[in-house]
């Protein structure tokens, strides 16, 4: 994909939001209780709204007739720039809420940095989105504490989720060429992120993992086996009936 770094960076932000939005949407109708079903679906819709803002801007930057829909529905797996964390299966409620906590905390710090980004459009989207993200952090961090301090079973599930997801968090802070060339330093966010996670884990009586191995690749298009299946479902209609509307 031959695109300029800002376009690729905006696509990366859009793909992160779309893929996690799609993942969370899998809970719709299956939430643990009605109220939380609505909560996670709301977050899903917030993320898809973010994705739209970023795709619309990416489409303008890219030109050549690209639209928000063509970027979401007509790109292949290898063209997606989302991190591996967001494409992992939704798992149980502990996995979903912990992943949301990891991701939203990262987004919160990133968007705070983007508020002063030289590209005004990116800064404006970050500003608009930050309120939603702050709520996602609040909601998900409380769930992590609730599960960690809940029953033996909920604690065990949280610990399992931490083990399953931790190796995907390092990628968030591993810079790609398009982030660097867009003037964004994600590595700077790491210590604040870890601090927030650590203090939350302390409240949740959960161990902070010490392993440092990080799976990377998603941000440059090398995805885990899960993304293809998601895109198959997400893109099926537009692929089968190009341009269809309803």
């Amino acid at each position: 994909m031959d695109v300029n770094p800002t376009t690729e960076f905006v696509l990366h932000l859009a793909d992160n939001a779309l893929i996690l939005g799609q993942r969370n949407a899998e809970w719709c109708g299956h939430g643990p209780v009605l109220e939380q079903d609505i909560a996670i679906s709301n977050i899903s819709l917030d993320l898809i709204g973010q994705a739209r803002s970023f795709y619309q801007y990416a489409a303008e930057l890219q030109g050549n007739g690209a639209t928000e829909d063509s970027l979401a529905y007509l790109r292949n797996e290898r063209q997606f720039r989302n991190c591996l964390l967001v494409e992992q299966p939704k798992g149980d409620w502990a996995t979903t809420t912990l992943r949301q906590f990891f991701f939203s905390t990262y987004q919160q710090l990133l968007f705070q940095q983007l508020l002063s980004h030289s590209d005004e459009r990116i800064a404006a989207i970050a500003e608009k989105t930050l309120k939603e993200v702050n709520y996602h952090v609040r909601w998900s961090s409380e769930w992590v504490i609730r599960l960690g301090d809940g029953t033996a079973e909920s604690h065990r599930r949280l610990e399992q989720a931490i083990q399953d997801l931790w190796l995907f968090t390092g990628e968030l802070f591993t810079s790609t060429h398009y982030e660097i060339e867009s003037g964004v330093d994600v590595a700077l966010l790491r210590s604040n992120w870890e601090e927030k996670i650590r203090s939350n884990f302390e409240e949740a009586s959960a161990e902070m993992p010490t392993n440092v191995f990080a799976r990377t690749g998603g941000k440059t298009g090398l995805h885990s086996e899960h993304l293809g299946f998601m895109l198959a479902e997400l893109q099926y209609l537009q692929r089968s009936f190009p341009g269809c509307e309803w």
Binding site: E35, Q36, I38, A39, N42, R138, E142, R146
Partner: peptide
């Protein structure tokens, strides 16, 4: 109470 407020916000 905290969760009740957030649920109310969402619902």
């Amino acid at each position: 109470a905290q969760m009740a407020i957030e649920n109310a916000r969402d619902v």
